[in-house]
Amino acid sequence: MKVPQQNPLDDPEEKLSAEESKDRNLPDAQSNLGSWGDGKGEDELSPEEIQMFEQENQRLVGEMNNLFDEVRQIEGKVVEISRLQEIFTEKVLQQETDIDNIHQLVVGATENIKEGNEDIREAIKNNAGFRVWILFFLVMCSFSLLFLDWYDN
């Protein structure tokens, strides 16, 4: 027997009739349960019970389809999270190499600054020594001129 794919509970009128038939069939099902327990009438199902089982089956199929769709969505989200995590890991590794390069540049710049400061100190010392020699030369020239001027008189 083939069951149609359309859910009969989608129509509000059918929902009401299904609920009414369920309410009416509960005492029947309970009375039949007693007879099933006795082993009598196991193969016989009333049309209402068949309809109720078909509706339940369709409802369960719908729920399973909904769960399947949710699982598909979750699977897609997990794949997307995995892809983003790979990108994140890639960027972190790239930043690690960039940080190492920056560290090397900073160390090199610090060494260059130290060497520059030493060169400046040496230049200041050399410049001070040169000034002393120029000052000494000018003083000696001045004394020579004074001596020559005194000697000439």
Rank of each mutant, 00 (worst) to 15 (best):
E111S: 02
G34T: 02
K22G: 04
L84T: 05
P27V: 02
D152S: 11
G62Q: 10
D43I: 09
L33M: 10
C141R: 09
A128R: 13
M64I: 15
D98G: 02
E20I: 15
Y151C: 06
L146A: 11
D23S: 12
L138R: 09
E80I: 03
T110R: 10
N126V: 10
V107Y: 00
I50L: 04
E42Q: 08
E44F: 10
D119S: 15
V139T: 10
N25I: 03
F88N: 11
V61D: 13
P47T: 10
N32A: 12
Q94C: 03
D100G: 05
N32W: 01
F68D: 14
G76Q: 12
P8W: 00
A18V: 00
I74E: 12
V3F: 01
F143G: 07
V78Q: 04
D152A: 11
L146C: 10
I124T: 08
E14I: 04
I102Y: 07
D28S: 10
S82T: 06
L84M: 09
E122W: 06
D43H: 13
L60I: 13
L105E: 14
K22W: 07
K22N: 08
E86D: 05
L135H: 07
S142V: 06
K125S: 08
K114P: 02
N7H: 01
E80W: 05
D119A: 15
E80V: 04
V92F: 02
N66W: 11
I50G: 01
R24W: 07
P4L: 02
E111W: 01
M1P: 03
D100T: 08
R72G: 12
H103P: 02
I99D: 03
L9G: 00
T97M: 08
E42F: 04
V78K: 04
E19Y: 07
F53E: 09
E56Q: 13
N7A: 01
